[in-house]
């Protein structure tokens, strides 16, 4: 099964690619629309800065096309943040798939928020299969999405924020599942299962 990993400026993607491959996916790592649209699912990895990412994706026609995607989609870290309305980082526009606004943590003492923090599921979801009610995941970010009806997992760092979100076939995680040990791998396994069905 082909899973696309969207290539863009600043993306360090070796870990997510190898994690998906380890789980049996055939990874299509590309910045070309015609390659990505053939995939059973898409992963939007998250590293680097927001604005260059938006420019890069726009120039390839991927940005404007993404909201029409009708198969499973997983945005990770920045890849999740860019699914919202806009982000203070840059500032940069978002895809508007989620209604959240990405803002700098308001109450945190120390930024970036780096390390392992607890993720607690707040709604039942196929991504949760085989995972406990709460688990540790690896975060590295300074901006966060507020809690909303799209929140299916939450975490706390000075304030509560969305760590897993969902709208239809679009999912997003603020943490890096590819860096979150066995639990992260289980979440990716669950996502691949969704791509298959």
């Amino acid at each position: 099964m082909k899973v696309g990993v969207i290539a863009y400026t600043g993306g360090n993607v070796r870990s997510i690619r190898s994690a998906l491959e380890e789980l049996g996916a055939e990874v299509v790592y590309s910045d070309q629309l015609r390659m990505l649209r053939e995939c059973a699912g898409l992963v939007f990895p998250g590293v680097g800065a927001a604005l260059p990412a938006v420019h890069d994706l726009r120039s390839r026609g991927i940005w404007d096309w993404l909201p029409q995607w009708d198969r499973p989609f997983l945005g990770i870290c920045l890849g999740m943040q860019l699914l919202g309305r806009e982000t203070e980082e840059g500032p940069a526009p978002g895809l508007g798939i989620f209604p959240f606004h990405i803002q700098l943590f308001r109450a945190a003492v120390r930024l970036p928020h780096i390390g392992w923090n607890l993720v607690r599921w707040t709604q039942k979801d196929p991504l949760q299969e085989g995972l406990p009610e709460s688990f540790y995941a690896y975060f590295v970010h300074s901006y966060r999405a507020e809690i909303g009806e799209y929140t299916i997992g939450m975490s706390e760092y000075g304030e509560a924020f969305s760590s897993v979100v969902r709208n239809g076939l679009f999912w997003g995680t603020q943490f890096h599942p590819e860096k979150s040990g066995n639990e992260g791998m289980q979440l990716l396994r669950n996502f691949l299962k969704l791509c298959k069905s």
């Binding site: 690896y138 860096k179 979150s180 040990g181 992260g184």
Partner: peptide
């Protein structure tokens, strides 16, 4: 290392 390790 990046291809195998699942922690940062």
């Amino acid at each position: 290392i990046a291809s195998r390790l699942r922690i940062p």
